[in-house]
Design a protein around this nucleic acid. Structure first.
Length: 262
DNA sequence: ATGCCTCAGCTCCTGAGA
C-alpha cells in the first residue's frame, strides 16, 4: 500500500500535474493508493471529483475560497470522514481524516505561523496543541494511524539547507519543534527517518532565487505513522520529479510504502 | 532590500505563503 502527501499550491493550477503523476505511478506498477492534498485554494463546488473518479479515485474534500483547503483521494473506500479538529473552532480548512482499509488517515495543512511572536504564530501554537489532543484520542481508538501533510515545521538542522542562517526563524524554532516532538511522543514515527537519508532531503523550495536548482530547501512535509504500522514500513521518499515540471508547486510529494496486510 | 516568485481576487495591486 502506497500513501502520499502533496501540497499542490492551487489544485486549479496543478490538477493536470496531479493526474499525470498518479498515472505515471500506476504505469510504473506502484500506484498511489491514498493521496492527501493541501492548499487546494478552491471551494468544494469547484473540486474536480469527476477527473479523480475517471482516474480511479474516490475523493473527499474540505475546501475554502482563496486559501488552505485539503482533500483525500483513495482507490479504496473512505469511511468515517472528519473535517478539521473536532472541538477546535477554526475558520480555516486544514484537516481531513478518513478510515481506509482499517488505517486511520489524517491529511493536514499546518499553519505557516509567519513569524515567531506574531498573532499567526500564536494561532499555530494553539492549533498544534488542539491537533495533538485530538490525535491522542484517535490513536487510542485507531492503532493503525497515518498523520501526513504540510507540517510547516522542520525536525532539526538536517531538514534545513542553511541551519545557521535560518536558526530560530519560522519552521525552525524551538517552540514549533517541541510540538513536533510531542506529537512523536504520542506513539508516532517520522517515516522518512526510519530509512537512510539522501543528502539534502527536502520537500519544499522557495520559488525565488532558483532555490530548487541550488538545493536550497526545507523538509516540512512529513508522514508520521503509528507504532502499530511501523513494522509495515518499507520505504519513504520525496519524489522531486514534479518539482521539475513547468509551473510546479513549491512542494514535492512525499511517498510512503507499506507492506500489505495487517 | 520592507527584495527576489507564485497564486487568488472586490485583479493592473495586495496579502499570504514559507
Amino acid at each position: 500500500m502506497r500513501l502520499a502527501t502533496w501540497n499542490v499550491n492551487s489544485l486549479t493550477v496543478r490538477l493536470p500535474q496531479v493526474l499525470d503523476w498518479l498515472a505515471a505511478q500506476q504505469a510504473s506498477g506502484s500506484a498511489i493508493d491514498v493521496l492527501a492534498l493541501q492548499e487546494l485554494k478552491l471551494t468544494d463546488d469547484k473540486f474536480p471529483f469527476d477527473a479523480f473518479t475517471a482516474a480511479g479515485y474516490e475523493a473527499v474534500c474540505f475546501g475554502q475560497k482563496t486559501y488552505n483547503g485539503v482533500a483525500l483521494l483513495s482507490r479504496a473506500p473512505l469511511n468515517a470522514v472528519v473535517r478539521n479538529i473536532p472541538g477546535f473552532e477554526d475558520e480555516m480548512a486544514r484537516v481531513i481524516g478518513a478510515t481506509v482499509n482499517g488505517i486511520r488517515v489524517i491529511g493536514a495543512y499546518f499553519p505557516n505561523g509567519q513569524e515567531p511572536g506574531s498573532d499567526k504564530f500564536a494561532y499555530k501554537m494553539r492549533w498544534l496543541q488542539a491537533l495533538r489532543d485530538w490525535v491522542r484520542g484517535e490513536l487510542a481508538v485507531h492503532a493503525q494511524l497515518v498523520l501526513m501533510g504540510d507540517y510547516n515545521i522542520t525536525f532539526d538542522d538536517l531538514d534545513v539547507w542553511d541551519p545557521v542562517g535560518l536558526k530560530d526563524t519560522i519552521h525552525c524554532t524551538q517552540e514549533e519543534r517541541a510540538h513536533l516532538s510531542a506529537l512523536i511522543a504520542l506513539g508516532l514515527s517520522d517515516a522518512m527517518r526510519l530509512f537512510p537519508q539522501p543528502e539534502k532531503n527536502y520537500s519544499w523550495w522557495d520559488y525565488r532565487n532558483m532555490a530548487f536548482r541550488r538545493k536550497q530547501g526545507l523538509r516540512i512535509d512529513h508522514i508520521l505513522i503509528s507504532d502499530a504500522l511501523r513494522p509495515r514500513a518499507l520505504a519513504c521518499a520525496v519524489d522531486t520529479g514534479p518539482r521539475r515540471n513547468e509551473r510546479p508547486s513549491d512542494h514535492a510529494p512525499v511517498v510512503l510504502d507499506l507492506r500489505s496486510g495487517g
